[in-house]
Nucleic acid binder design. Structure first.
Lengths: 247, 247
DNA sequence: CGCGCTGTTGAAACTTGTCAAAGTTTGTGG
DNA sequence: CCACAAACTTTGACAAGTTTCAACAGCGCG
């Protein structure tokens, strides 16, 4: 099996793109910046990188020097225990930030892997700190992004610590649905970019259990699922299942 | 049952204490600051608050406007699901920062509760952002603290997602041991400030399971445990159990 | 067009949870 | 300071949920 490799870096000017003209600016790091401030961000984010399915953005142990904003595509992040066990800690899609794990120790502590052909903007971290000393709104928004990552992680802990298999998968599907919706995609129909095993790792379940719960949901008319294609038929009932208000 | 309440705030000057003279400055937010910078931090942190066992530092939903640095004592943080289920997301001790969950939405998203009589320094968040625009080292260290919180959470996900009950409790004990050691206490002997139920919630186990595993560890000569008093007898074997190098 | 990866399903085994009872500690009020 | 109640802990027996092992089907890439 040949390891997929990253494509060559592409200077942003070749692509004529910048934060100020990026379609994701409402979702990504630029949230809340004025036009002038956005212009300064353009000087910071000058590099894009593409990754083929299976390629690593970074690996645990590598030196940390940049964050990565997902432009398009889909990533997973995984941590590896001393004994080699892997755990998927999250899935990232357009507008989300990868790499914040590395700030604390100047080394990445997890792997980030593209689950489909994808592209990120490279945000040199030293310069981000520099600029956020200058721009209060950037500083504040960056802190919000980190804080939300912490809150998201707490949600995963809740999921792993006190939910049963059906609730976990239900919560996972509802979460995906919301994130796709926020990006203008259908709330009820999408392709999973990850395998059953990756879902299982994220949810603390074995792949067979994930598969069984998918089948159960389907037999109950909650969803329709064929391999990686999922259609959510009854979102209210799915929300109910995970203890949320139906709407 | 009468609800325990917080004590009155105590102006810091009354106590003649400041970051620059605090014994925790090697552990807490001031890490890496020069004396001059430390002096500026003293103006930011001017308030202490004490909490009786059982009192809340903050509750989910309350407006966020400050971080809290633990001076002494012990806290738990918990998130509550829509259906009322609680999940302990962490335990905090001297030098650790509480409240970063609130930055993202300007509201706290979890509860922080004192597990024994405790004291914190209040760090007004707006002024922390202000000062960290001025002091690069403070900015960088604050980012490191948030990043480490994210990394810590990934560790908990690993624990909850792919370890069995014995491994979880073993990892928990080793982690406590390390944190006590870093604070100058015995690595092998300590009092648990939390109940079996709180440990169980944190580890994704029921309290009975926690109790059983404690008993099993004791019968195997790994630890000696009586109620809240724990003595770790065989740290190498405990590390081995959780898949770490013995030393 | 076939091989390998991914997904599905069944049966049995195992881990953890549930329920119950009793012991222990802690805190409170008399 | 004692007595009692409440909270916490331990342990057993049994149940439930999830994993393990295994077999097979389907899809997709080379």
């Amino acid at each position: 099996m040949s390891a997929p490799i990253a494509l060559h870096p592409v200077p942003i000017d070749k692509l004529r793109v910048a934060c100020s003209t990026c379609g994701l600016k409402e979702l990504c790091l630029p949230v809340g910046l004025s036009d002038e401030e956005l212009g300064k961000l353009d000087h910071l984010v000058t590099l894009r990188r593409s990754f083929r399915k299976g390629a690593n953005v970074y690996r645990a142990g590598e030196p940390f020097d940049a964050l990565y904003a997902v432009r398009f595509g889909f990533f997973k992040t995984t941590v590896t225990a001393a004994d080699g066990r892997d755990q998927v800690t999250g899935f990232s899609m357009a507008g989300e930030l990868l790499g914040m794990d590395g700030i604390g120790t100047d080394k990445h502590t997890c792997d980030a892997v593209a689950l489909e052909d994808s592209e990120v903007c490279v945000i040199p971290y030293g310069r981000l700190e520099e600029l956020s000393r200058e721009l209060q709104s950037l500083q504040h928004h960056f802190h919000k992004v980190m804080s939300r990552e912490i809150v998201r992680d707490h949600g995963v802990m809740m999921l792993l610590g006190s939910m049963r298999a059906e609730e976990r998968l239900g919560a996972f599907l509802v979460n995906l649905s919301q994130r796709f919706t926020a990006r203008g995609y259908s709330p009820s129909e999408f392709y999973l970019r990850m395998t059953r095993e990756e879902i299982g790792s994220y949810l603390g379940l074995k792949l067979e259990t994930v598969s069984r719960v998918f089948s159960k949901f389907q037999s109950e008319g909650l969803i329709s699922v064929q391999q990686k294609h999922v259609r959510i038929i009854d979102i209210p009932r799915l929300r109910e299942l995970i203890g949320q208000r139906p709407c």
